[in-house]
Amino acid sequence: MKHQPSQAFRWGIVLNAAYIVAEVAFGVAVGSIALVADAMHNLSDVLGLGIAWFADWLSCRQPTLKRTYGYKSSSILAALINAVFLLVAMGAIIVEAAGRFAHAEPIQGGTVMAVAGVGILVNGVTALMFHAGQSHDLNIRGAFLHMAADAGVSLGVVVAGGLYLLTGWTWLDPLVSILVALVVLVSTWGLLKDAVNLAMAAVPKAIDLAKVRQLITDFPTVVGCHDLHIWALSTTDVALTVHVTRKTDCNNDQFLEQLGRKLRDTFDIAHVTIQVEYGDYQPLQATDNPY
C-alpha cells in the first residue's frame, strides 16, 4: 500500500531536482534572474515533497510504548506544513508580480517558454503520480497540489511568453502569474482547512457523524449510544470510540465483532472501540451532551 506513494515521492524529487539544476544553468547562461528565482521556488517544492515523503515513511513505523498509535499523525503535520508552504509561495508570487506591474521589463520570451515548457512536463508528470492517492490521503493531496500548482505556473509562463512575443506587452507576465496564483490559493485554502481540522481531532470530512450514529442505534439489540467520538489518526486512518447500551447481554463478543466490522466496512474506520453498557436505559435530555 505504501510502495506506490514511496516511488512517486522518489521520482518526483529526482525529476524536480534535475529541473532545478537546469533552470539555474539556463538562468545564469542567459542572464535571467526570473529563471533563477523560479528555481529557488521549485527548491521549496522539493522540500515539501521531502517532508511529505518522510511523513509517509514515518506513518509506517511500528507503535512504541510511548507512541501507541505509532507516528501516523505525522502525515497530518506534513499536510499542514505543505499547505502553509503553498500559501507562502503563492503569496510571494503575487507580491513579486504586483511589483513588476510598476517596473515591467522585457523578457526573453523564447528561452523562458522553452524552460517553462519543460517545467510543465516535469511537474505535470509528478502531479499525475500523486493523482490517484490524493482523493483519500491529505498528505498525498498536499504533494499533488504542490506539483499541480507548479505545472499551472509554468503553463502561465508559456502563455505569457507567447503572447509577449506576439504583442510586446510586458505586463502580461505578472498578470498571468497573479491569476494562476489566485487559482492555486483557492485549492490550497481547502487543503489548509482540512489539515487544521484533522490536527484539531475534528470528524474527518468524508464521514457523516449523524449517519454513524444512526447505524449504531439501528443495530440489533442496541437501544442507544453516547460518548461517540470520531477523529483522524493520520491522513488515511480514522478512529472511533462509543458507549453502546444494549437491551441484552447475550452473545456480547459476537455483537462487538459484528458492529465493529459494520462500522469499518461502511465508513472505512480503521480503529473501532466499543464499550457496552446494560441496565435501565435513560434517554438523553435536550440539555445533555449528545456525545
Rank of each mutant, 00 (worst) to 15 (best):
1 M>R: 12
3 H>V: 14
9 F>V: 08
19 Y>G: 01
19 Y>T: 00
19 Y>L: 02
23 E>M: 06
23 E>W: 00
23 E>N: 03
33 I>A: 15
34 A>K: 02
38 D>A: 00
38 D>M: 00
39 A>D: 01
44 S>D: 09
46 V>I: 06
47 L>T: 12
49 L>P: 00
56 D>H: 15
59 S>V: 09
62 Q>C: 06
64 T>C: 04
64 T>L: 07
68 T>N: 10
68 T>G: 08
73 S>C: 09
75 S>V: 06
77 L>T: 10
77 L>Q: 11
80 L>Y: 11
85 F>A: 05
89 A>K: 04
92 A>Q: 11
93 I>K: 01
95 V>P: 07
99 G>C: 09
101 F>Y: 13
101 F>W: 12
110 G>Q: 14
116 A>E: 04
116 A>C: 11
119 G>M: 00
122 V>W: 02
123 N>D: 01
123 N>V: 00
124 G>K: 00
135 S>H: 13
137 D>I: 09
138 L>K: 04
141 R>K: 15
144 F>N: 07
150 D>Y: 01
151 A>V: 15
156 G>D: 08
157 V>Y: 04
161 G>E: 09
169 W>V: 14
170 T>M: 12
173 D>H: 09
178 I>D: 01
179 L>F: 09
188 T>P: 03
191 L>F: 04
200 M>I: 08
204 P>C: 01
206 A>E: 07
214 Q>A: 13
217 T>D: 11
220 P>N: 00
220 P>Y: 05
220 P>A: 01
234 S>G: 07
236 T>R: 07
244 V>G: 05
246 R>P: 02
248 T>V: 07
249 D>H: 13
250 C>M: 14
258 Q>S: 15
271 H>E: 14
271 H>I: 09
280 D>K: 15
286 A>H: 14
291 Y>W: 14
